[in-house]
Nucleic acid binder design. Structure first.
Lengths: 214, 214
DNA sequence: TGTACATCAGTGAACGCGCGTTCACTGATGTAC
DNA sequence: TGTACATCAGTGAACGCGCGTTCACTGATGTAC
């Protein structure tokens, strides 16, 4: 879905696109444009332009710009989830430990962020920053969280059977925080995007896993 | 500097502000406006408006908007550094361990982000997101890093004397990543901003300290 | 102490820009009889 | 098979908006003689 397919020229008839073909094309164009632009520099008009369609046409498929961005967010979350799953499965298929598979997922997370900074950021913008007054999650942006279920599931398996649900939650949050923080600091240029640093996650994730087992 | 001082009405003469008084007032107004707006919704014109000055006046003190934002970034970094130092010193003064002081700094970091989401974000935007082509840090935005020296210094003290420089770097990066990731995930509404979760940093930072000591 | 003058922090009007969104419309597609 | 018609995904012009930045300017301040 996020493949760099040249989404222009998929017109097939004078009418325009085959039924339902414009929506995925718009999402694809949006993702492609995000490789080079900052998140806030992405405009509805630009997406339409890239697909070769008038800005108005977008409104046939999304109620407004926010909905378009929401669709982008979901697409990115799905891509990341797929890459994480692949990393996990590859390690397991090669006879690796569950912990090794867990670490591989974390490293995939960071590498994904580095490979697609703006996509990664738009994914995190799904849930709008908490407003000062309402800290409650506005729900509806659960695509990312769905993607994170894998991580939770993996963490849960790493913990001893008698671990409480709360212990599992905390462990997952710790792991996600570590990996997410490293990704963000690298994206923001605060720490160098070195593979050596990403590699150090192997040990950390291990630690986080065993530590919470207590 | 970031205190919520009412920066309007500091005019003293028909001429306008006392020599050099506008610049800090603009920074102060910018910080205040960031409590309620998203980072990208902050405009130069709005900052000027709040101080009660024409947009053009800003250009007497900053070459362009980016310079204004850079000044905001630096101010926030200094505020955070001050709060971290205070947290550290308070623990130490109460006879706490160096590790406890270290953990207190980390928790202060997260709480600061929660208290001032947009300020925190503008601080991280100091270094523009790494462009696809040039991964090199554009330097000049070292205010944040200067603020992080404290953390590095504290981590260094926690490590055994024979630890290599690289080990110290990695340890500091781990700690910063964990704490930063938690802050960002909370700001983005991905995990609840619970004090219980922030409290769990006590154990984690401990672990990171001892783990890297190996 | 007074006058002439350079400095410089402000003003206010204007610019061009791209944006998200709305409107009335067009014309091909697919369906009912 | 042919005709009438509803559907609906597109068009293109237009809107109002606030933005960052520029321009020529004004007028108080501080200094030199």
């Amino acid at each position: 879905m996020s493949d760099n397919a040249n989404s222009v020229n998929i017109k097939h008839s004078a009418r325009g696109y085959h039924h339902g073909a414009l929506r995925p094309a718009l999402i694809d164009a949006g993702l492609t444009l995000l490789d080079g632009r900052a998140v806030d520099d992405l405009s509805l008009r630009e997406v339409a332009r890239r697909v070769g369609v008038s800005p108005t046409a977008v409104y046939r498929h999304f109620p407004d710009k926010q909905a378009l961005v929401g669709a982008l967010c979901e697409a990115v979350a799905n891509d990341l989830a797929a890459e994480q799953k692949a990393a996990h499965d590859t390690v397991m298929a090669a006879g690796g430990s569950l912990r090794a598979a867990f670490a591989a997922m974390g490293q995939t997370y960071v590498r994904f962020a580095l490979a697609h900074p703006a996509r990664f950021r738009v994914m995190m913008s799904a849930a709008p920053p908490v407003a000062p007054s309402d800290m409650v999650r506005p729900d509806g942006e659960q695509a990312v969280n769905r993607a994170m279920q894998q991580l939770r599931a993996c963490v849960a398996e790493l913990l001893p059977p008698d671990a409480s649900d709360k212990a599992r939650d905390i462990a997952a949050i710790r792991a996600w925080s570590l990996v997410h923080g490293m990704a963000m600091l690298m994206l923001d240029g605060m720490i160098p995007p070195d593979e050596a640093i990403i590699g150090s996650l192997n040990e950390d994730l291990d630690l986080l896993g065993s530590a919470t087992a207590r």
